[in-house]
Design a protein around this nucleic acid. Structure first.
Lengths: 242, 242
DNA sequence: GCAGTCCTTACGAATCCCTGACGTTCGCCA
DNA sequence: TGGCGAACGTCAGGGATTCGTAAGGACTGC
């Protein structure tokens, strides 16, 4: 009998869900907060976790990450509204599926079965998780975890501001693409119009923090008359000076 | 409602992508491997294809090629990392855009909309290009990536200015065709009138950078009394009987 | 040899980007 | 509540790059 861990701080929700899953033939475990969820998941790893995104104490994303550290384990996220942000966050952390509140318990059961079916079928040879590793971005010396809002360079954490972080995330997601200031303003700032020098200045400040030599940037290069382009360093760091 | 075909062997990825595209108002079809992708694309041609580069059985590049044989059809490639190799490959096959994993589904939706918008507005009144918009270009020792705004010659990057880049892009898109200065002024500069010597000078500067012997150009030759013609080095005969 | 066309060079002007600095806003803490 | 500092957006000066044009010389075809 497959075990499922349900994590939700609302006992009404978790009880209803547990009931439906039990009737569907699952062995159900319940946790009401983040720490106990992580504890149970590590002590007795279930086959799947149903996880509320909004938890008291520890964030659902953080829980997801902790659980995933112990091993590959399918996760279904319960997100508040049909909030786009939440869904994206969930997926980036590596949730296998998500259900938006309010949801019908039967639908949730169907989702659980579906995810387990998927997880059971493709037996990946490696110990790699059956889920796509959507968690974390990496390019050369840089790493970036959108969920944790943390970025590192050569293993050391970068003190980035909000804008700088968003900007770097955009660049990491769009490597090797020349992007105009207008588009950066749209995609990073969300503005349709605005002073483009804002972009210029923030690129400069970002370079200050991630480039070896900010005066001669190698990661974020200027494309004259067009915009900027992030070039992920090639695998081999050695290059000849022409 | 526009149909989009999503091709990925990982059901998690394709389902998530399909979900987002559906919510964005697209009619989504899914295929898990190369042969079925080609089958579906030919049976019921969609408006656009989202294609994973790494597929079991048939390579994504091969799939792209097969699909393209049936007719003009925008393709967005999903490439593994910010891997330069993959991007070049994808562009050579003629992908219209690429998204690197890990990607946020929202990003992909934006790309799909962007490519469709571009494809929907056929700019050139000329009967020349069928599909090409953002596709990578290559001719002899030259490669040109419009998205990255980068051009190489014998693998080494060329330092081209905006005008030089646009000019070279035009020539690569219109090989073997003699083009008058007036037309170059219209198509590259976007001017209806202007000093034609401007074109002359820029052609010269471009020759300086891409020709072995700029005094005796072989790539961009002068057609006396007419204009210029770009001759791709004879590697594979591509007849232009249109 | 001639007229028309093209190539080469040079230079001022325009464009674009970087830099530093400033005022404002917002959150935090005394 | 008021002060403080970080982060943000804006602006102007300065430097570097690029562009467009003109002028003279070289070449082509007749």
């Amino acid at each position: 009998m497959k075990r499922v861990l349900v994590v939700d701080d609302d006992p009404t929700v978790s009880e209803v869900v547990a009931g439906y899953l039990t009737r569907a033939g699952f062995d159900v475990d319940v946790a009401a907060d983040g720490p106990s969820a992580v504890a149970r998941a590590t002590a007795q790893p279930p086959e799947l976790v149903v996880l509320d995104l909004m938890l008291p104490g520890m964030d659902g994303l953080e829980v997801c990450r902790r659980i995933r550290e112990t091993g590959p384990l399918p996760v279904i996220m319960l997100t508040a509204r049909g909030d786009e942000e939440d869904r994206i966050l969930g997926l980036e952390v590596g949730a296998d599926d998500y259900v938006t509140k309010p949801f019908s318990p039967r639908e949730l059961v169907l989702r659980v079965e579906s995810v387990l079916r998927r997880a059971g079928a493709p037996a990946t040879a490696q110990g790699a998780p059956s889920v796509p590793r959507l968690t974390g971005l990496r390019a050369g010396p840089l790493t970036l975890d959108p969920a944790a809002r943390r970025a590192t360079r050569c293993g050391r954490e970068l003190a980035l501001t909000i804008r700088e972080f968003d900007l770097l995330e955009f660049f990491l997601r769009n490597p090797g693409r020349a992007t105009s200031r207008e588009e950066l303003m749209r995609r990073v700032w969300g503005w349709e119009f605005g002073d483009l020098s804002t972009v210029t200045v923030h690129v400069r400040r970002l370079r200050e923090k991630i480039e070896d030599d900010p005066a001669h940037p190698r990661l974020i290069s200027t494309v004259w008359g067009v915009g900027y382009r992030f070039d992920p360093p090639a695998a081999n760091g050695a290059d000849d000076a022409a």
